[in-house]
C-alpha cells in the first residue's frame, strides 16, 4: 500500500508538471503574438506622431533614408502587389491544373508519389530561389526582353510563383477530393468526359476551397522576403512596370534592419510603419477569404 501511494504521488507530480509545461508553452506563443502587436502599436504611434497618416497613404515617394525625406507607403505597396500578382498569375493556373490532374485523372499511387515532390518546392530555402531568379531567370529573360533591368519584379514574381505552387495545388486538391464522389459519378453517368466533369462540376463545387488556397498563397507571396530582396531590387518605385527594379515592404524592412539606422530614430520607426501595413494587408486577405467562404456556403446550403 505504501509503495503504491508513493507511485501515485510521483505520477501526480509528473502530471502536474507536464500540465504546467504545456500551459507555459501555449502562453509563450500568445505572449509573443501579443508582444509583436504591442511593439508594432507603440512604435507605430510614435511614427505617426511625426508623419501624418495622410502623407503616409498618399505620398508617392518613399525616401526615409535620404536627406529629402518622403514617407509614402504606396511605392512599397505597389512593389509588393506587383510581385505577388505575378506570382499568383503563375501559381494559380499551374497549381490548379496539378490539383485537377491529381484528383481527377491520376491514380492514387501516383498521387501519393508526387505529393512529397511537390511539397519540396515549398521546402527549398528561399535564398536559393532568390539567387536562381537573379542569376538564371533574369539573364534568360533579358535575352528575350531587351532593356530589362538586372533587378526587376518579373523574375522575382515568376520564381516566387513557382515556390507557392504547392500552396495552391495541395489545398485545391484537398478541396476537390472533398467534393462528394456522387457528383463525379452523376456527371460521368450523364456521358461527360473527365475534362467536362472537372471543369463544370468539380471545380465549381470545390471553389470555396480553391479560393481559400489562392488567398493563402497570396499571403505567402506578400510575406515573402528573400526572393524579392535579392531579385527585385531595393528601389521603392510607384510603378506597374515589371521590368524595372522595385522594392517590396518586406525587402525594405530587411534593408533597414540590416543597416545602421540608430535605434529610436524616425528612420528606425519606418520599419514598424511598414510592418503595420503588411499586417493590415494580410488581415484584409484573411477577411476576404473568410467572406468568400461564407458567401459560398450561403449559396450552396
Amino acid at each position: 500500500m505504501l509503495i503504491l501511494s508513493d507511485k501515485m504521488k510521483k505520477r501526480k507530480i509528473i502530471e502536474f508538471s507536464i500540465e504546467k509545461l504545456l500551459l507555459a508553452s501555449s502562453l509563450i506563443s500568445i505572449l509573443t503574438t501579443g508582444g509583436i502587436i504591442i511593439v508594432l502599436t507603440i512604435e507605430g504611434v510614435a511614427f505617426f506622431k511625426e508623419v501624418s497618416v495622410i502623407d503616409f497613404l498618399t505620398d508617392t515617394e518613399w525616401t526615409p533614408l535620404f536627406t529629402q525625406k518622403h514617407f509614402g507607403i504606396l511605392p512599397l505597396l505597389s512593389g509588393t502587389i506587383l510581385t505577388s500578382f505575378i506570382a499568383i498569375a503563375v501559381a494559380l493556373p499551374i497549381g490548379l491544373s496539378i490539383a485537377v490532374f491529381l484528383s481527377e485523372y491520376s491514380s492514387v499511387r501516383f498521387r501519393e508519389l508526387i505529393k512529397p515532390v511537390l511539397e519540396l518546392l515549398a521546402a527549398v530555402p528561399t535564398v536559393i530561389y532568390g539567387f536562381f531568379a537573379l542569376i538564371v531567370v533574369t539573364p534568360f529573360l533579358q535575352k528575350l526582353i531587351p532593356g530589362m533591368s538586372s533587378f526587376n519584379s518579373l523574375s522575382a514574381g515568376l520564381v516566387m510563383g513557382i515556390m507557392i505552387i504547392p500552396y495552391v495545388s495541395s489545398l485545391s486538391q484537398d478541396a476537390l477530393l472533398a467534393v462528394p464522389s456522387s457528383l463525379r459519378e452523376a456527371s460521368y453517368g450523364m456521358g461527360a468526359t473527365r475534362l467536362q466533369t472537372s471543369v463544370k462540376v468539380m471545380i465549381p463545387a470545390a471553389s470555396s476551397g480553391i479560393i481559400v488556397s489562392v488567398i493563402l498563397a497570396i499571403s505567402r507571396a506578400v510575406g515573402e522576403t528573400m526572393i524579392v530582396a535579392i531579385a527585385a531590387g531595393q528601389q521603392p518605385r510607384l510603378t506597374l512596370n515589371p521590368l524595372v527594379p522595385v522594392e517590396t515592404i518586406t525587402a525594405y524592412i530587411v534593408q533597414v534592419s540590416l543597416g545602421d539606422v540608430p535605434h529610436g530614430s524616425l528612420e528606425y520607426r519606418t520599419i514598424f510603419a511598414a510592418g503595420i501595413t503588411l499586417f493590415v494587408f494580410t488581415l484584409i486577405l484573411n477577411n476576404i477569404s473568410y467572406w468568400f467562404k461564407r458567401k459560398y456556403q450561403e449559396k450552396y446550403e
Partner: peptide, 8 residues
C-alpha cells in the same frame, strides 16, 4: 443513383 445527387 440511390441517393439524390443533384449538382450544386
Amino acid at each position: 443513383f440511390q441517393k439524390p445527387n443533384p449538382f450544386p
